[in-house]
Amino acid sequence: MSVFDLQHGTVVLGGRRILEEVSVTVDEGEFVAILGANGSGKTTLVRTLVGLNPLEAGTLTVFGTPLARFREWPRLGYVPQRLSVGGGVPATVGEVVASGRTGRLSRFRRFSRDDRAAVAHALEDVGLSDRAGDPVATLSGGQQQRVLIARALAGEPEVLVLDEPTAGVDADSQDTLAGALGHLSNNGGSVVLVAHELGPLAGLIGRAVVLSHGQVQSDGPPPQPEGHHAAPGHVHVHPHADEQPPSTFGLDR
């Protein structure tokens, strides 16, 4: 069964067409990367899949159910693109991660042993077990990103949707993240993630959907680095052209 099935989806935000007739299907157990340049519509696509952006045209089913009638939200986990955990009041790592269980709990039930186990497990997956009692604000950016992922994992979702989980994250955190996602994927979970740089995630990805100007440019096996790009130790840098042509006499800089 497909986890997400978007057919001819068009999304308009603030009067601008961000996605145009996009069709993407994600099957159970798949690990899909959404790639593309800035402004190609990657974030809009994943937000649409989890029901945060309304469709102007087209259809979307989630676990086989049309989105409007979908109620099994605990099957989804979502990690938005955030620079930090946020919030004006201090909160501990444990509290933030535990809030990922909220959708699974009925109002008057106390936090059970199962709930606590899921939270502990999620913290372990992202390597932050020893930080559960610390205020989130005292963690580094990469660690806070891991907290956000642990929050989603704590809900024990069948599919995890992540928006740029590796942006601005240190190498250690990227490796931990790859481990956690690999673990989820090995246990039959599905992963959809937006990425700019794949880094250590590259080996996990089974399929890549490349967007360009709000349309699907390609959908298939992930692009392999070629030539010296694939060489170990290659630093992926794109030098930008000078804004001004060099001056003839070297005086006007």
Binding site: V50, R71, Y78, V85, G100
Partner: peptide, 10 residues
């Protein structure tokens, strides 16, 4: 904490 995540949690 996060309105978007709360939405997706149902």
């Amino acid at each position: 904490q996060d309105e978007d995540v709360a939405h997706v949690s149902g």
